[in-house]
Amino acid sequence: MSLNANGARPRRHTVVAIVEDKPGVLQRVAGLFRRRGFNIESLAVGHSEFAGLSRMTIIVDGAGAPVEQVQKQLYKLVDVVKVNDLTSEDAVERELALLKVRCNNVNRHELLEIAGVFRADVVDMATGSLVLQAVGDADKINGLIRMCEPYGIRELSRTGVIAMTRGQKTTTVHESEPEAIARVHQSQGRRVESAELPFSSD
């Protein structure tokens, strides 16, 4: 069990899972969290360095359950190949956010100044609003949001955190599947082009 500087169990955990890229795997993971009462703060999924494997970064609120149980339960899913808790690792955590903020000719320059401080890019500008794109850890995004709130945030979209350890250490799978088996696994549960199929409701 990893402890933080105060000797307390950290509340927020960053769990990375490498999973088979198949239909239904997201539901399996989400269903597991719901069923066991683990709280997800954010979940981000995308391709990993290998075809056929996806990488999930899950921010877990550890107040609900010990994160050790979260890891073990994830491992029980056949489609989950590897799980790592990066909370106590030296890791980079990043999130991307888009904010549409209300503005006018008078206060636009103030907003641009705030964006500059947070190194947020302006990706759209209109007479009554602008869209900022910010990348950073959760603290930085939260800071930008707080600063923009007085102007009026019309829309906010966050990707959820993704994470990676610094240095040589990796969260990766070193085992590739034989080609024939990989072909079966990757087509498992996937819809076949419907044009190929006969229609049969009898």
């Binding site: 239909p23 399996r28 056949v78 076949v192 419907s194 049969s200 409701s201």
Partner: peptide, 29 residues
């Protein structure tokens, strides 16, 4: 397969239903 997801006669998302009560499940396409 062409009728999956169309709520046809006697269709149930049974792999969705059995997912939390099986060790693993398959929809073979």
């Amino acid at each position: 397969r062409t009728l999956l997801g169309k709520d046809g006669f006697q269709e149930a998302d049974i792999t969705g239903i059995t997912q939390p009560i099986t060790k693993h499940n398959y929809l073979v396409m």
